[in-house]
Design a protein around this nucleic acid. Structure first.
Lengths: 255, 255
DNA sequence: GCTTGTGAAACAATTCACAGCA
DNA sequence: TGCTGTGAATTGTTTCACAAGC
């Protein structure tokens, strides 16, 4: 959730047209359903109830049904959903019927790991190019792909029909890379650099920041600790700063 | 968004007690504000307006002000927020006044990268232990830390006061690792394995799935393509399956 | 005059609960 | 009888717009 602009639904021109314009929250869950469905399919299930799929995906069944209803999906009352059919539908909606080519820029620590991550290949993506600005990295081969200089991006984008750009550079380089990606026509960017990118209307950016995830957990950890720290003590504490960390107990691990 | 259970606000016992119980959406944004604030501080700003900070953090200013108001934060009308003070407040709320110890389980491709990621150290965390189940990895040194066997978790957790567990194992191993983490008292888990973890009440799990992020981008890419593909054609297309991919045009890169 | 803090309005997402169908 | 699909109720989030304060 962050930089997303939606072109505004085209005012109902007649018969329901192209993609059903799903709620963003639903879109974010479809991939998880898809994963769960593949798992079920591998286990030999041909059909699954909303309850069963919801469990496998870690959501509740009402939400799942509402999500699927947005796809206009057809389950069978009294029976459930056809696993194979649902997989096809979700893959279609997510635009995964074609294998998308991804360009990864920044082959440092994290970039290296991403370049070698099988999860991409197995879930509809093809890392089509590795790029970096550091001359000492050019030519290195990772997982069968040779690292090329980021200036070759225009050529690479054209040759490989790059659909999505992934930025795994240090923060100071990220905006320039984003600009270059946009310049060659990339309209979807996944950004691992801890910074805000500014991009023109119509370009989608998603951000993954590993430290942020930890900080969110830290908040909950902190909160749980403060709650158990005061069994029923009504007053006494001034937990917001001024005098920082007055009662910042060391969060008991265990009970 | 996913597996989170909240103990339910303790019904106002008297004076406002411990942590202000922020909306989850706000919590998720605080780390971003914090990053932006540090950036501003480094650039020499002592004070910043909601507008300025909002820009740096990539949100709009009304949202930012509402978020900060939940902290009970004190800006100065007509002036803005004191950068240093706000940093302290947010760090306090996020529980970052103590440096938290993180145990990383799974030192494969991704785990390696995480072990070497500076972003953790620089933002309040300390990777205190690297663990793996694969005997051939035990003893390897990464970034000054020796990989230990996951069975040593109980000892490690006690020695290092582990606050957060990070799972970077393959999916099939993840649940077992989660169970072990929970058993030694870890109540916050960051899961990189593409699967749903089941954990007892009171344990927070956040999931990062790199392929899912790409799939969400793929959806938008697909959607943008279908929109531009029909300049104003009212009918003709049956974009939902049955006959899959009927009009799944190759998404024009560029204009 | 400029900027915060915040009620009130608008919007979005989730959950409930049940009618409708196989 | 069992399970989906969905209106209606609820809860949560964002945005607006302006009064209050420096």
């Amino acid at each position: 959730m962050s930089q997303h602009r939606h072109p505004g639904a085209p005012g109902r021109t007649g018969a329901v047209p192209a993609p059903p314009d799903l709620p963003e929250a639903t879109v974010a869950r479809l991939p998880e359903y898809l994963r769960a469905l593949h798992q079920l399919a591998d286990a030999g299930h041909e059909t699954v109830s909303s309850e069963g799929l919801a469990n496998a995906a870690g959501v509740n069944s009402a939400k799942l049904r509402k999500d699927l209803s947005h796809l206009g999906s057809y389950g069978t009352r009294g029976v459930g959903y056809d696993v194979g059919l649902l997989i096809d539908q979700i893959e279609f909606v997510l635009g995964l019927t074609q294998r998308r080519a991804v360009a990864l820029v920044g082959v440092g620590n994290l970039g290296h790991a991403l370049a070698g991550y099988d999860g991409f290949a197995s879930r509809g993506f093809r890392i089509a190019a590795l790029l970096d600005a550091d001359p000492s990295r050019i030519g290195e081969e990772i997982n069968g792909l040779v690292v090329r200089h980021v200036d070759e991006l225009p050529r690479v984008a054209a040759e490989e029909s790059i659909s999505i750009g992934v930025i795994a550079t240090p923060a100071p380089a990220a905006q320039a890379v984003a600009d270059q990606l946009v310049a060659v026509g990339v309209t979807s960017i996944l950004n691992f650099a801890p910074c805000v990118l500014s991009v023109p209307e119509g370009v989608d950016v998603r951000k993954v920041d590993l430290a942020i995830e930890l900080q969110i957990l830290s908040f909950h950890e902190h909160r749980k600790a403060s709650l158990t720290a005061l069994p029923a003590t009504g007053g006494t504490l001034t937990p917001l700063p001024g005098g920082l960390a007055a009662t910042d107990t060391q969060e008991a691990i265990g009970t």
